[in-house]
Design a protein around this nucleic acid. Sequence first.
DNA 1: CCTCCGGATTGAAAGGTTTCACAAATCTGG
DNA 2: CCAGATTTGTGAAACCTTTCAATCCGGAGG
Lengths: 345, 345
Amino acid sequence: MVVREPGAEPRAAGMKDVAAAAGVSLGTVSNVLNRPDRVSPVTRAKVEAAMAELRFVRNESARQLRAGRSRVLAYVMLDGSNPFFTDVAAGMEDAADAGDLSLFLCNSAHQPSREAAYLGRLEQQRVQGILITPVDPDAPVLHEIARRGTPVVVVDRTPDGTALCSVAVDDVHGGEIAVRHLVEQGHERIAFVGNHPSVGQVRDRRLGALRALSAAGLGPDHLVDLTTSALTVADGRGAGERLAGLPAPVRPTAAFCANDLVALGLLQTCANLRMRVPDDLAIVGYDDIEFAAAAAVPLTSVRQPRRRLGRTAAELLLAETTETGHEHRQVVFTPELVVRASTLR
Amino acid sequence: MVVREPGAEPRAAGMKDVAAAAGVSLGTVSNVLNRPDRVSPVTRAKVEAAMAELRFVRNESARQLRAGRSRVLAYVMLDGSNPFFTDVAAGMEDAADAGDLSLFLCNSAHQPSREAAYLGRLEQQRVQGILITPVDPDAPVLHEIARRGTPVVVVDRTPDGTALCSVAVDDVHGGEIAVRHLVEQGHERIAFVGNHPSVGQVRDRRLGALRALSAAGLGPDHLVDLTTSALTVADGRGAGERLAGLPAPVRPTAAFCANDLVALGLLQTCANLRMRVPDDLAIVGYDDIEFAAAAAVPLTSVRQPRRRLGRTAAELLLAETTETGHEHRQVVFTPELVVRASTLR
DNA sequence: CCTCCGGATTGAAAGGTTTCACAAATCTGG
DNA sequence: CCAGATTTGTGAAACCTTTCAATCCGGAGG
C-alpha cells in the first residue's frame, strides 16, 4: 500500500522514486522502459510492480528534452468544420499510426493570428514535423520554420518555389473534366460559382473550366461568373437566388461550383424555388465530400483523393525526418469526376 | 551575419548561446523572456538582437519540465468526421483562446485502441487537462487519469457517479420534444431510427420519445423501431428502404432519427423512392448540424448547444486547474427543437 | 568619504529522463 | 579452477530552461 502523509502533496512519482521503491538504480528503471530485454525477468517484475504501485507516468517533457524532439506530428488545418479537411486528417492518422506517432490537429479556422499562434507553439514544442493547409501558402513564415529545423509539408496548396514539400491536386484538370462533362451533356452557358479567384485553387478550377469550353469551341463568354465572398453553404444559397433572378435567355443551364458546400447551398435554393435539378439546372460540385453523395439529388462532383492526400503528406514528412540529403518533392494528384444524378437527365 | 563552419551541424541555438552572443548571463536571457521589465532597455535590446541573429526558438520541453505542466488542452473526440464534434471543438477553442492556451484535437474515430493511445500520450505530455467524448463513458481509465492528476472533463456523455466533471445535453427531453411535435402534427405511428439503444444517448432519446407518446395517450406500440448498426448516412439510407418496404397500414407516417446523419440518409432514400417529405413521411433529426438546414428539404432537428457545450467543458476544465477545493460538476443543457420544412405540411 | 539602498545582473541548483562507459556477476570451455 | 566472454546493473553527465539567493554597481543621504 501507498502510505501518504496526511496533507502531503501527492507529487507525481518519477523514475527515481520507482528505482528507490524497487531497490534498483535509476539506469535500470530506464532500461526496463526502453530496453526491457536487457533486464532480467525478476528485476523487471520488481520494477514494474513499483511503477504500478506508485502510479508512475513517464514524463514526456523530460524525454523530449533529452531526445531533442517529440513523437508528435501536427496538422494545422484551414477549416475544421469542412469535412474535406477532416478526411485529409484521417489519412494522416493512418500514416502516423503506422509510424508510431501521434497526430495533433489544430484548427486555424481561416484566422492568420490563430495559425501563427499554433505554429509558434508547435515549433517550441519541437514537434517532429508540421503539416499545414495555410491561410496564405506563400507566407514566409513557413520557410522560416523549415529553415529553423522543423520540417513543413504544405497540404492541398502549392507554394511558390521548391523549398518545401507539398501535396496537392491538379485543380486545372479538375475544372476541365467538370466542365467538359457539362458540355458533353449539351450545356453551353455555364455558371462558375466561387469566391474571387485570387485564391490559387479557385483560379485554377476556373482556368480549367475555360480550357474545357475552349476545347469545345466555346469562348470565355460562355462562362458566367457568380462571385461569392467565401465557399460556404450560405454563399451557395445566395448565388442560387442571383442565378434564378437572371432572365431566361442569359440564364446558365448548368453550374460548376468551386466546392461542394457551395453546390449544396445552390441545390437547396433550387429545391426552394422549384427549379428541377438537373433539368432546369445541372450542378457539379468539387471535393466529393460525403454529403455530396447524400444530397437529395446526389451531386456530381470532382473527387479529390482526400485520404490519400493526407497519407502522402504525412509520409513525405516522415521521409524528410529520416532521409539524409532529402529532396523536397511537390506531389500533385489527379482528381476524377464522379457523375451522379445532379447532371444526368 | 551568422557564420557557420562548413559542415558544422546547424544545431539549434539555446539560451546559453544567446547569452554568450549578447555577452550577458543565462539568467538575464531568461529575464528578458519572462520578466522583461526587470531588465534595462539596452541589455534587453542586445539580447533580443542576439535571439534574432541566432534564430532562437524557446524549448518548450525544458520549460515544461521545470514548470511541471504545459499550456495545452486536448480534446479527444469520438468522430472527427461528424460536424457535431467539430462544432463542439470550436467552442473549446473560444475558451482556450481566452485563457491563452492551445487546444489540440485528437480523433479516436470510435476506436478504443486509438483512444487509449492518445490518452496515454497526453498524460505523459502532462497536458493541463483532457476533454473527451469517450467510446465508453464508464471506462475506469478516465478515473485513473484524473486520480493521477490530469483533470478530465467528459463531453456530451454523463459518466456514472460524480467523480468527474461533465457537460451533456438532456437527451430524454430532446426525444420528448421531438416526438411531441410529431404528435401535434397528427402523427400516431412514428419510427425511431437509431442503433441499438445500449448507448446511453440513443436509449435516452428513445425513452423521451416513449414519454411523449404516453403523454398523448399513445402506447409504446406506436413507436416502430428501425434499428441500425451505427449512426451514419448509409445507415439512414438502409432504414429508409426498410421503411418503404412496410405495408401501408403499418408504415409509420413520421420518423424520429437518432442523429442528423441518419436523417439525411433517410431523406435521400425518400427522394429516390418518390416519397414526399413531409407529406408521405415527416422527418425529425437530432443535433441540428449545418447540413440539416442545408438539405433539399430543410430538416427539423433537435438542436444541441454545440459550441456552448464545448466552451462550458473547457471552462470547467480551467476551473478545475485553478480552483482550490474544486467540486466536480455535471452540467446538463436543455436542447430545443428547430422546426423546418421536413415536418411542416 | 562612507553607508545604505534599490535596481540590474549573475551563478548555481533543480527538474526527470536517456545514454554510455564501466563495474559486477554469471557463465563457457579448457 | 582460471581466462575470457556475456549478461546485468550502476553512476554520472547531458539536455535546456526557470528560479532564487547572492552579488554588483551607481547614486542618495548623512
